[in-house]
Amino acid sequence: MTPMLRRAVARAKCSKCERPAVAEIRYARLRLCREHFNEFMEKKVERVLRRVGVLQKGRIVVAAVSGGKDSSTMLAILSKLSKKYGFRVIGVHIVLGIREYSEKSLEKIQQLCRELRVECLVIDLERVIGFTVPELARRAKRPTCSVCGLVKRYILNAVGVELGADYVALGHNTDDIIAYSIKSFINHDITQLAKFGPSTETIKGVAIGRLRPLFEVYERESLLYALVNKLPIVIDECPFRPRSPMEDKIKEFMNSLEDDHPGIKLAFVRRLEKRLGFYKSLAESQKYGRCKYCGLLSAGDVCSFCRVTEKAAGKPLGPLVRSEIRRLVASIRERSKAP
């Protein structure tokens, strides 16, 4: 052993107690043990939820869960806060039919929901419409990721509408929001940029507002939360994920900045939230109506989901999806009535 090589040092103590630290939060100059790290994370989410008015008895939040680190961390924290404040959380997982990746994801989600004792709704796309996402994309001649996003947005919104939910919660973390915002700047798309706050508005009966509980949670913190709490998560990546998406490059750049200027990512999203009113004032006004087939939000006569499924299957499948979701939601209602 050379003189330079030190032996493994003892774990530093938590900044708040005597327990060994498991996390270092550089921008807050804190080293935290598992308990205090969890408290730190839960307070971050709690502050965001308070700002958007979720922390009230009777509120219903549909949590989109994929099995990955972010949505699992989000569900775990929402589940804790729901018990404290009395709002209801219902997890929704969509089985996309992406070979072993979907099988592994479903397995982890079922385990997570069991461990957290959270009600979770599983919607198997192939069972409902007869196609998996890759098949739908192939038939519609559209990129798989684009169809996947469309299917998820449609189903989550439809579940939210049927449940009369206040919000659909997404696992977007600080790094995601920064990457999407910078991409919007690159495209000079202010209308899109104006949507990246901690929440978006609900249009009653047709579109449920989106909630981003991890708005102030760094991607690294989200992963750390999942790891230190041993949440069942899927580590593998979706086989359809592009090799080097622009978002990854932006994240890498922002992480290098964060290394030199701790807290810069947090400052970015906080300033973004403060400027949202300004961006909204610049955004192009969009007129929305109802899809003539399924009745949900649409920019034209027919919503994107009905248009794509019509192209792929010969008929719009929005009404079929909505009736299946209605059946699943009714079974949840029955279960919650049971003693």
Binding site: M1, R6, A8, R11, S66, S71, D175, E219, C238, D248
Partner: peptide, 22 residues
């Protein structure tokens, strides 16, 4: 592991890349 912790020669660690998956 925290930033200032050090490991001995031959140690085996797992490195989770936060930016992948989600």
């Amino acid at each position: 592991l925290l930033d200032d912790m050090c490991l001995e020669d031959g140690a085996v660690v797992d490195a989770y890349v936060a930016t992948s998956g989600g």
